[in-house]
């Protein structure tokens, strides 16, 4: 029982991270109908810039307990950095290809992804050494349920992720800008005819998606502290799993991304705990292939018919 609860808690935490990243994939897909392959790398940059900002502010592993505002400052700066990054990626890599075939955009996205990874591991940027994120949040136990310790970090991860998802829902479905986003995702040309500034909406989508990925990166660094070097396969895998979450949930659908994220997190953690911990990457991809075979549009996705 304790084991199961612990596993579910881990699944919830990891799943929230996946969900946060998946939102970025799904937003871009919803608006531009292409897989922003580089989104997982924005997540990586988010985690690493959180580390870099923390280091620049003088917080280190050995430096004792940082003040309470440290976590907030680091989170916001990392989100800011990635928001700017997302803006530039869209502006200079994707916008010139707005009307190009989807495959070309996908290849470009792979190029951007490789660019981010390999720039990230340059010595003047983050370097090729793995680093440990200092604990910006105290490792206090909030409460215990059936022998499972629920710590501040876990609760922060889940709560912050949920808060951001709720915020995004509000943005998309309750604001004028959100209706502009939905209009653009429905049809660019018609949205443009309605006086919506399509380019602005698309830029903003990238900015928001990248900021969410950065938040996920920060939370990841809080929870796991060990940061592999920027071009490490682990990052790509995390990004991929988040993408899988978006596909499983139904790409283009915000609630689907959240649901998919939680599902992937749970499947991965339950599989690791009860089947074999070595095969955790396997479960996710098997789930992906299963979903694509039996319900290619994902759990909450809708089918679209190509016009002939």
């Amino acid at each position: 029982m304790t084991d199961l609860l612990q596993t579910l808690l881990n699944g919830l935490a990891v799943g929230s991270l996946y969900a946060l990243i998946a939102l970025g994939y799904t937003m871009v897909y919803g608006i531009l109908q292409f897989i922003n392959f580089a989104h997982g790398d924005v997540f990586m940059i988010g985690a690493w810039s959180a580390y870099a900002v923390a280091a620049a502010l003088g917080f280190t592993l050995a430096g004792g307990d940082p003040p309470g505002w440290a976590a907030v400052a680091v989170l916001l700066s990392s989100m800011g950095i990635c928001a700017v990054l997302g803006f530039f990626i869209e502006r200079f890599a994707y916008r010139p290809l707005r009307s190009a075939p989807r495959l070309n955009v996908l290849i470009t996205a792979i190029g951007v992804s490789l660019l981010l990874q390999n720039t990230g591991q340059l010595r003047p940027v983050f370097g090729t050494q793995p680093q440990s994120m200092p604990a910006l949040l105290p490792d206090t136990t909030l409460f215990q349920v059936a022998g499972v310790r629920v710590g501040l970090v876990d609760v922060t991860v889940v709560l912050l992720a949920v808060a951001m998802m709720v915020g995004l829902q509000w943005l998309v479905f309750r604001t004028r800008f959100g209706s502009a986003m939905r209009a653009v995702s429905h049809d660019h040309r018609i949205a443009a005819l309605m006086g919506i500034r399509v380019d602005t909406v698309i830029s903003f989508t990238f900015v928001v998606g990248s900021a969410l990925a950065a938040a996920a990166g920060f939370l990841f660094a809080m929870k796991y502290s060990g940061l592999k070097q920027p071009a490490d396969a682990t990052w790509v895998l995390l990004g991929l799993k988040a993408f899988v979450a978006a596909v499983v949930g139904g790409i283009g659908n915000l609630q689907g991304a959240m649901l998919g994220g939680l599902l992937i997190g749970m499947v991965e953690m339950l599989g690791a705990a009860y089947l074999s911990p070595h095969l955790r990457d396997l479960y996710v991809f098997v789930l992906l292939i299963g979903v694509l075979l039996f319900r290619p549009t994902g759990i909450m996705g809708s089918t679209s018919v190509e016009k002939v």
Binding site: R102, L106, L240, L279, F285, I289, P296
Partner: peptide, 28 residues
């Protein structure tokens, strides 16, 4: 056979996933 029914960009992900599955299995 199963995945080529999917659209191009999904296929990319499935093949990538396949590569990873192979890697994980070989590592075990």
């Amino acid at each position: 056979l199963p995945s080529l029914r999917l659209r191009g960009d999904y296929l990319a992900i499935v093949t990538l996933g396949f590569g990873e599955i192979v890697r994980v299995l070989l590592q075990q």
